[in-house]
Design a protein around this nucleic acid. Structure first.
Length: 566
RNA sequence: GUACCCAUAGCUCAGUAGGAUAGAGCAACGGCCUUCUAAGCCGUGUGUCCGGGGUUCGAAUCCCUGUGGGUACGCCA
């Protein structure tokens, strides 16, 4: 594609010895509305250096450029120089590129040869998967895909919460009250019930706590019975989680949970000792971080056992050694901000210069109008319920509008689940979410179904087309505002993906494809596509083709499927 | 108490690493299906961009400060 910014840079810098291309490009911006052109160059910053008023500078530059075939108009409005790209050229360069690259349009190889690890989803074994877990899962999954699309080699790691004292308690509870039939039928619910019961009973009968600790000790020591029961819990939970991951179409490269690092922590503790980083404090061993304005990072508890920071440090080192990552990204909610800052600092203090390549990508918390989600208080919204309700609502709509749709069930799932994922990815991830059913199940406007619908509708036009898609069209037929808006959005698609990657923010892509969908729907409304005029039809079809291609790619980057029909 | 995050239309949110009159969606009201999918399109209205200072030619955006909300602050993860 033509790099229009660069072309402007060349044009303007040619006339000024003291202004090079890059400074010009730096100055360029997109005007607040398109009546002011495709690019604008404000001249305020040049005023001092050139000792002239900004609007005079703008005028002079415009005067010096003269006619240029890439731009149909270059004019100054006060201190701004506005560049209007020739629409014929614009359409041609963009549409040809989309047609050539197809589903790779927007990709790059900037990440070639670089590994990036993603630590995401990471649910706790034996606990239900609720809407809170959804966030890490879908954000992580989307980032995984975005990085891959930009040439990186993404490595997805599910850091399962599969270790710790609570498993001793679970085993103890299971030994006392376990019911195998119930466990096989409704594993998570039953395990959850056992956990709750244990805590209730332990209030009356404190020695239960000791029993739980004992079982965990046995588990750590490799006791056969303990291992066997634990393994069963893990497998049952994983079956359940995998069912949800299948629904969401989320995959992981590794399921290395906390237990995986059990035998790898000694080495790290020794390393910390060796580096003289460990100090005793209140019976525990910590790394002092006062210099960095943070509370100490506990490495060994006073009973000598490890803690999650120890595990995270160990896992980071393991991952560096195993995958030699260029970046390592952790997707958790922001309540862990301090924890991440602490252990990342410890990795740095050990002397690993790659500590700077570890990123915490925090997101906001989910609550309900009643307050925060608390499993114990029963204030939980299960992901299953959300997905099911969404799917059911989609089913109603499809039964009404398109009852004879082929692969109906499949499409219903795609849309229902897509709605849930899109809802989670369409806003800045740092924002808290107050869960609301009406909002969740709204399928109009800036929603997943809206984007999917636009795609399906465009796709259906392609099905009715009377000619093959070709780039051999008359681009001068595509110079109306509706078409030009689409060109702008397709043109900037790659840039949006790169920014989404740099900021670990999938919502940029969600916003971008909403914009494309809106622009297309206007085009669709204003410009009939299957028209008698052969040349016009071919030209417009190429736009339709490009839009379906790019929306599909964009949805894909969010982890959402794009049905052909709906 | 300390640190970090958030505060933009009735509601949910954008606002591209300071720029031209602050934008969408939802909700409300009014139009548009004998023509490509009406989950759509078009139109109508609203703003002390939390308050107060400051930096700048220019601030929703940067700095300081106050207020409100969230989160975290040692042996859970």
């Amino acid at each position: 594609m033509i790099d229009f910014k660069k072309e402007i840079g060349k044009l303007v810098s040619k006339k000024f010895d003291n202004l090079n291309e890059d400074t010009i490009i730096e100055l360029l911006e997109v005007p607040p509305n398109y009546e002011l052109g495709d690019y604008a160059m404000p001249c305020f910053r040049l005023a001092k250096e050139l000792r002239k008023a900004p609007n005079v500078i703008a005028q002079e530059i415009v005067g010096s450029i003269g006619k240029n075939e890439l731009f149909e108009k270059i004019e100054n409005i006060g201190p701004y120089i506005n560049f209007f790209i020739n629409r014929k050229t614009f359409g041609e360069t963009v549409l040809k590129e989309v047609f050539e690259k197809k589903d790779m349009f927007g990709s790059t190889d900037i990440g070639k040869g670089k590994n990036v690890t993603f630590d995401f989803s990471s649910p706790n074994i034996a606990k239900p998967f609720h809407v809170g877990h959804l966030r890490s899962t879908v954000i992580g999954n989307s980032l995984y895909k975005i990085y891959n699309f930009l040439g990186y080699n993404s490595i997805g790691i599910n850091h399962l919460g599969d270790w710790g004292t609570q498993f001793g308690k679970m085993i103890s509870a299971y030994k006392r009250w376990g019911d195998d039939e119930a466990l096989n039928k409704e594993p998570i619910k039953t395990l959850q019930g056992l956990y709750v019961k244990f805590h209730k009973e332990a209030e009356k009968n404190p020695e239960l706590e000791d029993e739980g600790r004992l079982w965990f000790k046995k588990l750590e020591d490799g006791d056969e019975e303990a291992r066997e029961i634990w393994k069963r819990f893990v497998d049952l939970s994983l079956d359940e989680f995998n069912r949800i991951y299948d629904l969401l179409k989320v995959e992981f490269d590794y399921y290395t949970g906390e237990s995986f690092y059990e035998d790898k922590m000694d080495r790290i503790v020794d390393l910390l000792k060796e580096k003289n980083l460990l100090v005793e404090s209140e019976g525990a061993y910590v790394v002092d971080l006062e210099k960095y304005n943070m509370p100490p990072c506990i490495i060994l508890k006073s009973d000598g056992t490890t803690i999650y920071a120890t595990r995270d440090i160990t896992a980071a080192i393991y991952r560096k050694e195993t995958y030699d990552f260029a970046k390592s990204i952790y997707i958790t909610d922001y309540s862990q901000n301090l924890h991440f800052a602490q252990w990342m600092k410890v990795v740095e203090l050990i002397g690993y210069d790659w500590a700077k390549d570890i990123y915490h990508a925090p997101f906001g918390r989910v609550s309900t109008e009643e307050g925060r989600l608390q499993t114990r208080k029963g204030n939980v919204i299960l992901l299953d319920d959300v997905l099911n309700k969404s799917i059911e609502k989609v089913r109603l709509i499809i039964e009404e509008k398109n009852p004879n749709l082929e692969n109906k069930d499949e499409v219903i799932k795609m849309v229902g689940i897509g709605a849930v994922i899109f809802n989670d990815l369409s806003n800045s991830k740092i924002r808290d979410i107050v869960f609301n059913w009406d909002r969740m199940l709204s399928f109009e406007g800036e929603t997943g179904p809206y984007v999917q619908y636009t795609h399906a509708r465009a796709n259906s036009v392609l099905g009715k087309a009377e000619y093959d898609i070709t780039t051999d069209v008359d681009y001068s037929l595509l110079t109306n505002d509706e078409a030009a808006n689409i060109f702008r959005l397709l043109y900037s698609f790659q840039n949006t993906i790169i920014t989404a990657m740099e900021k670990n923010e999938p919502s940029f892509i969600a916003r971008h494809i909403i914009d494309i969908a809106q622009a297309f729907n206007r085009f669709y409304h204003e410009c009939p596509i299957i028209v008698e005029d052969k040349e016009l039809q071919k030209a417009r079809l190429l736009i339709v083709y490009s839009v379906t291609t790019v929306i599909k790619t964009g949805l894909g980057l969010l982890g959402i499927e794009a049905p052909q029909k709906m």
